[in-house]
Simulated assay, not measured.
Amino acid sequence: MAYSFSQLLNRLSFRQLQVFITVYQLRGYSKAAEKLGLTQPAVSSQIRHLEQVLEQPLFEYIGKKLYVTSAGEQVAGFVKSMFADLEDMQSTLSEMTGSVSGILDLAAVSTAQYVVPHLLVGFLRQYPRVRVKLTVVNRSKAIAILDENLNDLVIMGMVPEDRLLSVMPFLDNELIPVVHAGHVLAGQPIVKHEDFFLLPMLVREPGSGTRHAVEAFCSEQKISINPLMELGSNAAVKHGVLAGLGVAVMPRLSVQLELEKGILHQLSMDGFPLRRSWNTVYPRNKHLSPAAEAFLSYIELNIPSIKEHFENLYKI
């Protein structure tokens, strides 16, 4: 039976549409449940109810893979447009009242987790009604987030060049060679590349931006490296260096306290620090939430003071 428009309004809910568009974007019930904080049966129930109201199947499984039906594609287009209009309404009303609220959904590569808190302090002081959700990932996952248009913004260093993205550089990311304080190289005023890179190296996992930058440098210099161990976080690499397992190239901010305390030592080596930019990144045609727009505006207006803040942190 076909429902009239008024009946449709009575039977539909924004929650159903939110669940639908999340399943559509992530192509999976369990992934949508995790993102929305629901159980998988609850997601399935919402989709089933929506399909009953619309009298159309929206998704179908072929084997173990979820596919969107032609009706589902049509519904997705209308729902995206509807949600974009709602965001415009929220933004307009927020501007009228002089406030911005809502959730700022950020993803940051693991090395940027040391940067983001410093950005948020001033931002949240200016926009106290904004709530922040921060997901820490490696570079390959960050690229997947951009491809799937999941979070509001991604903060990353090495931005893929083969995608249509809006990119705003805002801070240098310095990568430095480090050894433990008692290492034989720690007493040398200048260290040669071959003396450092032939040592057992502690490296991040494939897909890490830091590893990518180091491998690119070594390739340019025609230097071979000697990876001893792959580790899944900067904290693990740092503690490996502290324990004397090997040497590493690390983001300066991730070892700042250890450098200040004198338990790690930064080597002086030609070509270092490697300098990359931290960037805010999002798909070029993405419709940003008011909170995301406010965050971008805050960073853009405060780039000089942000740089000064981190330069002061770098002083040892």
Rank of each mutant, 00 (worst) to 15 (best):
L124H: 05
S94H: 11
V237N: 04
L50R: 05
D147K: 14
Q46Y: 13
R204V: 03
Q256V: 14
A71K: 12
L231F: 14
M201A: 03
T280E: 00
V130Y: 01
D88P: 14
G98M: 12
L93W: 08
A84H: 10
V178G: 10
P177M: 11
N285F: 15
V167Y: 00
E73A: 11
I143H: 01
L153C: 00
R163H: 01
E73D: 15
E73M: 11
A142H: 00
L245D: 05
N312H: 09
G187M: 10
Y61E: 13
V281P: 00
K141M: 03
V53Q: 09
L26E: 01
H287C: 08
V68C: 15
L164M: 13
N302W: 04
E205R: 07
V255R: 02
A32E: 06
P160F: 00
P41N: 14
S70F: 14
N279D: 05
T39H: 07
L165W: 00
S219C: 10
F78C: 03
K35A: 09
K307A: 03
V130M: 06
Q188W: 11
I155G: 05
F14V: 15
K141E: 04
V247T: 11
M156Q: 01
H212L: 04
R15W: 09
K307E: 11
S208C: 11
K133N: 01
V255L: 06
